[in-house]
């Protein structure tokens, strides 16, 4: 049995460790403390925890004010509310004012499961990517979560993190180092590169790479935990090395990871890119396994996309000859 850890527990523990060392760290919640699992933080730092009630716009605006007062506010709510309901507050009071708000959106994409379409953000990365200088990231396992939250805390400026709350298999070792804006190579490969982000899709990409081996295809797997700024160097290295890419995201195809990779390729080294992602659709209820198939995100779909990529490249090569 692979070692699994509950992501929200890791997030909370990381915040507690940071807060012990840095008294500027404060926490804001909008009546979702039970969901975020940050109650333990409140027990230890009651005076540094602010439950703002069901009022996300005010919460993010207050976080900006706390930052103007010298604090480092982590502000949590479901990703749908973080991104959509408090967008102008995060945009103007946080980012435009060049303050230091750490916004955390939980249950990204299909992780919302039974909360369904109203709570299922497939667009948060897209709208967040449009905020100048904002760092947008999504950890894929407990280790990368801990290390990237630490990096976010020490970074001077706003960040937006997508947080999967549930138990997730550990894929990194404690010795692994992480930098915001630098992707991690999980597996090397020669035929094609799978670039994934987030707990659900990195796991699917790793599964897909195993399935591809059975078909004699060597796939590299990259954990692109930071969607903005995107790791241009790493993308271009693997574009040159493997000649084709598949991006895998728990998000709309529009303006997410796949778009960021496509923008990088088209201006530097165009190779064939296939994108696994939600195809211009709203969310709906269901368990993760159902939704992975419903939105064509699962390992099986990644395998198909990789094979399509290789076949199309073959055809293009024939045409070129």
């Amino acid at each position: 049995m692979m070692n699994q850890l509950e992501m929200r527990a890791v997030y909370t523990q990381t915040l507690i460790e940071l807060a012990k060392k840095d008294e500027r760290i404060v926490l804001l919640e909008a009546d979702l403390m039970k969901a975020s699992g940050t109650g333990i933080f409140k027990n230890i730092f009651p005076e540094r925890t602010f439950n703002m009630g069901v009022a996300e716009a005010n919460m993010v605006g207050v976080a900006a004010g706390l930052s103007a007062g010298g604090k480092i506010p982590f502000s949590d709510t479901f990703a749908c509310f973080a991104a959509r309901r408090a967008y102008d507050q995060f945009f103007i009071s946080g980012n435009y004012a060049r303050l230091n708000v750490k916004l955390v959106g939980t249950d990204p994409g299909i992780a919302s499961e039974y909360n369904g379409g109203t709570h299922m953000p497939f667009e948060d990365i897209g709208i967040m990517r449009n905020i100048p200088k904002l760092v947008v990231f999504e950890p894929s396992d407990p280790v990368s979560l801990k290390k990237l939250v630490e990096k976010s805390a020490s970074y001077q400026g706003c960040t937006y993190m997508r947080l999967h709350r549930k138990p997730i298999t550990v894929i990194y070792s404690e010795e692994d180092e992480f930098e915001l804006g630098k992707g991690k190579i999980l597996k090397d490969g020669t035929d094609i590169t799978l670039i994934a982000s987030g707990a659900i899709m990195v796991a699917e990409a790793l599964k897909a790479s195993e399935l591809l081996i059975e078909e004699g295809i060597s796939a590299a797997v990259i954990d692109m935990h930071t969607i903005k700024p995107i790791d241009t160097e790493l993308i271009l290295h693997y574009a040159r090395k493997t000649g084709g890419l598949v991006t895998c995201e728990n998000h709309q195809q529009i303006n997410g990871l796949g778009s960021a990779v496509a923008e990088t390729l088209i201006e530097n080294y165009p190779v064939l890119l296939n994108r696994i992602g939600v195809r211009d659709e709203f969310g709906e209820v269901g368990k993760t396994d159902y939704l992975l198939e419903r939105y064509q995100l699962s390992a099986g779909h990644i395998v198909s996309a990789a094979k399509t990529n290789l076949e199309q490249r073959k055809k293009l090569e024939l045409i070129q000859i």
């Binding site: 602010f50 005010n58 993010v60 605006g61 900006a64 004010g65 706390l66 604090k71 102008d88």
Partner: peptide
Amino acid sequence: NCTPGIDMTTGSLGQGMSAAIGIAMANRL
């Protein structure tokens, strides 16, 4: 960020309210 002496960036109405609350909370802490 433009003007010395301005304590908070404003312009999107309603937002200065929340920011002032945050600054007051930081002062208290």
